[in-house]
């Protein structure tokens, strides 16, 4: 296992370098000269040239990339063109909101996906199987932002059960763009804030859960059907074990291995997908921040956020591979 771990860790280094290069090449000079962006269109050429020199933009691109990489490794992602605040601070403040949303969505997706997938997989060709397959098809075909919009119309505008957007009622005096609001309120026993934050969380979390729930359900069903057709399951049936015992103790163990891979990948995609969901619900996370930054042409911020999410995505993939190897010894010895 140690050899596998080291090999797998070493393999992530070129991937991370590649991501940083892509992000740098795409966003470093996106939207024109950063010096012009900072000074405005009316700046004199001398001033622009001076600022370009100060910002190091007159150096060769390769040198600028290495400089960017060197600072990024130390946690310095540059400063916003707009507010001049360090990009990392911006990200650190807003990241908990995104994590809270993504974790809630993943939990919902797992509960729905496993339940639907298991029932469909153990009752192949039943009515439930067909309907859940159909719902899963809807899940991967309906655009996330429209699902969110429909939820807002139905539960927010028509039924008035849940708030339309935001993270917490501003009248409660909680800073909505920082920390884990739900978790903190729970720990402090502040039930008013807890209930309000939870109500704000439900719609975005369910919206974001749609896609991964469909994927997990499909995967669980397919994997379970395959495992249930194997000989050791027939042996278990022949021994007279109950169906419940067969599914839970024998089939699940093997059926879940491929599902776990999918979950790992989906969680990474979920953080990316939060870009859209956060925009729909005005959720103050880093996804919405990245869109705002693009529209304001504040590419330094976009670069930082994309780089961070890319690194997290790679880390999640690594973690998934390791769990996979832990669960299935055959992987390690390949």
């Amino acid at each position: 296992m140690a050899a596998y771990l080291i090999r797998r860790l070493l393999l992530t280094i070129p991937i991370l370098l590649g991501i940083s290069l892509i992000v740098f090449l795409m966003l470093h000079t996106a939207g024109g000269d950063p010096a012009v962006l900072k000074l405005g269109q009316n700046a004199t050429p001398e001033n622009v040239a001076r600022l370009r020199h100060e910002m190091g933009l007159d150096r060769p691109l390769a040198v600028q990339y290495l400089d960017f990489l060197w600072h990024a490794i130390q946690g310095d992602l540059g400063r916003s063109y707009r507010s001049n605040a360090p990009v990392l601070d911006d990200i650190v403040t807003r990241f908990p909101a995104t994590v809270e949303l993504a974790v809630a969505a993943m939990l919902i997706a797992l509960v729905i996906g496993f339940t639907a997938g298991t029932i469909a997989g153990t009752r192949k060709h039943s009515f439930f199987d067909y309907s859940s397959t159909f719902v899963a098809l809807l899940g991967v075909s309906i655009p996330t932002f429209w699902l969110g919009l429909i939820f807002i119309i139905v539960f927010g505008v028509w039924l008035r059960w849940l708030p339309l957007s935001g993270r917490v009622d501003p009248r409660l005096g909680v800073d909505p763009s920082s920390n884990f609001v739900v978790l903190e309120a729970l720990i402090r026993g502040n039930w008013t804030v807890f209930k309000d934050a939870l109500e704000h969380l439900i719609l975005p979390a369910v919206t974001l859960a749609g896609w991964p729930a469909a994927i997990v359900a499909r995967m669980t069903r397919a994997s379970l059907i395959e495992v249930l057709g194997q000989e050791y399951i027939r042996t278990a049936r022949a021994k007279g074990l109950s169906e419940r015992m067969i599914v839970w103790r024998h089939a699940y163990r093997n059926a879940l291995i491929p599902v776990i891979t999918v979950i790992g990948l989906e969680f990474g995609a979920l953080l990316g997908g939060a870009v859209v969901t956060e925009t729909v619900f005005a959720w103050p996370g880093i996804g919405r921040r990245s869109v705002e930054a693009i529209l304001q042409r504040d590419y330094q911020v976009v670069q930082g956020i994309v780089l961070l999410l890319g690194v997290i995505f790679v880390a999640l993939n690594l973690l998934t591979d390791l769990i996979y190897a832990l669960l299935d010894p055959r992987i390690r010895y390949r």
């Binding site: 990316g272 997908g273 870009v275 869109v291 693009i294 976009v302 999410l309 890319g310």
Partner: peptide, 24 residues
């Protein structure tokens, strides 16, 4: 293939918005 796999190393929507940002 290493180049192709790099495109998979970022979540789809992030890659898409980065490209969209780059191209205007």
């Amino acid at each position: 293939m290493a180049f192709v796999d790099l495109l998979l190393a970022l979540p789809a929507i992030l890659l898409a918005i980065s490209i969209a940002a780059r191209l205007g």
